[in-house]
Amino acid sequence: MNHDIRSANRRSTVLWVLLLAATVFTWAVGEGGSGGAAIAALLLGVAALKGAAVILDFMALARAPLLWQLITLGWLVLVCALIGLAYWKGMP
């Protein structure tokens, strides 16, 4: 049991560091001043990956029934996809 918890701690620590790094990446892209469809898609993709990590590991939904994984990850994918669609619609 304690071995399981130690390995769960290690996994969450690695994810936390990756999430921090992804946030700094998003901030740096914003500071770079670039815009456009490709950048919007990239940043939405990064946000979706970060969200999936929080859902599956931090919220422990990786150990939940499939239905709950589908609902939460489905929400994430749908929201990011519709935001992407709206940005594409608003492109000059």
């Binding site: 946030t23 998003t26 901030w27 892209v29 914003g30 815009g35 950048i39 919007a40 940043l43 939405l44 990064v46 946000a47 970060k50 969200g51 929080v54 859902i55 931090f58 919220m59 929201v79 990011c80 935001i83 940005y87």
Partner: peptide, 17 residues
């Protein structure tokens, strides 16, 4: 974690993209 999760979308959406 839900409060954190929604901010992960809010930050790029409102501040960056």
């Amino acid at each position: 974690h839900m409060v954190d999760l929604v901010w992960l979308i809010l930050f790029p959406l409102v501040y960056v993209i």
